[in-house]
Nucleic acid binder design. Structure first.
Length: 291
DNA sequence: TTCTGTTTACAGTGCG
DNA sequence: CGCACTGTAAACAGAA
């Protein structure tokens, strides 16, 4: 695998897919999430090839973000203005490039199968709302729990991997920029992560499925920020503020969910356009209300 | 208006 | 050869 330095590829197209490039950008920041504009900047700064024809490749990149299950969308806090959401990597997407090729994955990462039990499939809005409220309550506890754990377990700063399949502290995500652009990576930026960042990392990877944003009023998660607001304030990347509520763009499979404390395990399906219909939830998708 | 995000469609390519 | 993955274009909606 080539490991490009800053100018390795000059104006030539780098041997990376948009998925790889996006993953690099996301992994390059301590919070492991970036807004779209920052992903653009990262790619353009590092690969001069992408300083031209921006409309073309940025459209492709956006398509990849939406289309590929390995990317998840994380909503901004409502009191932190800005366009668009943050994007992060799905916790289970880490082995997509195990074949060593960053141009073509060995297999496309895809969110898994539909569970048989789905309270949200209930016919009545009341049932769904009630269930969602229960899940919100769980997540509220989860946020606190996660932060507390992060404070005591620095290795949790790697966020995604702190669950059912624990990784050693030296674990490096296959997407990690230190694995791809080794010459530019400064390990101290990781080992020197502050507790604050650990908190953020732990919290930011506590998932909540997108459809939960819609059917019922959601305030518990955001209101919990007040409990440790000092930790969250001033955390930003390139002037971007901390996102508020992790909102997976696609529902997670049970296998992925089980390792995430407090995460509801009922979520099913993927967007209907991908042939995995979720009729009763489809109407909930487009009306995300973030508090 | 611009940017962001979603979706569909289709062509090219690599792999088994 | 068929399938899966990737890249590109385009239409469209919604938010800032």
């Amino acid at each position: 695998m080539p490991r490009p330095g800053r100018n390795t590829y000059s104006d030539q197209k780098p041997p990376y897919s948009y998925i790889s490039l996006t993953a690099m950008a996301i992994q390059s920041c301590p919070e492991k999430m970036l807004p779209l504009s920052e992903i653009y900047k990262f790619i353009m700064n590092r690969f001069p090839y992408y300083r031209e024809n921006t409309q073309r490749w940025q459209n492709s990149l956006r398509h990849n973000l939406s289309f590929n299950d390995c990317f998840i969308k994380i909503a901004r806090r409502p009191d932190q203005p800005g366009k668009g959401s943050f994007w992060a990597l799905h916790p289970n997407c880490g082995d997509m490039f195990e074949n060593g090729s960053f141009l073509r994955r060995r297999k496309r990462f895809k969110v898994g199968s539909v569970l048989s039990i789905d309270p949200l499939e209930s016919n009545t809005p009341q049932d769904r709302a009630h269930y969602l409220q229960q899940q919100q309550a769980k997540l509220g506890l989860t946020a606190l729990h996660t932060s507390a754990c992060a404070a005591h377990l620095p290795q949790m700063s790697f966020g995604y991997n702190r669950n059912s399949s624990p990784q050693p502290s030296s674990f490096k995500h296959p997407f990690a920029i230190e694995n791809i652009i080794a010459t530019e990576y400064n390990m101290s930026s990781i080992t020197g992560l502050s507790l604050t960042n650990q908190l953020v990392s732990g919290w930011s990877h506590t998932y909540r499925p997108r459809m939960m944003d819609t059917a019922a009023p959601i305030s518990i998660v955001t209101s919990d920020y007040s409990s440790y607001s000092s930790a969250f304030k001033s955390i930003c990347h390139g002037g971007h503020t901390l996102p508020a509520i992790p909102v997976p763009i696609k529902p997670m499979p049970a296998a992925a969910v089980h390792g995430l404390p407090g995460f509801p395990t009922h979520i099913t399906g993927t967007p209907a356009a991908r042939g995995e219909t979720l009729p009763s939830l489809a109407a909930l998708k487009s009306t995300v209300a973030v508090h």
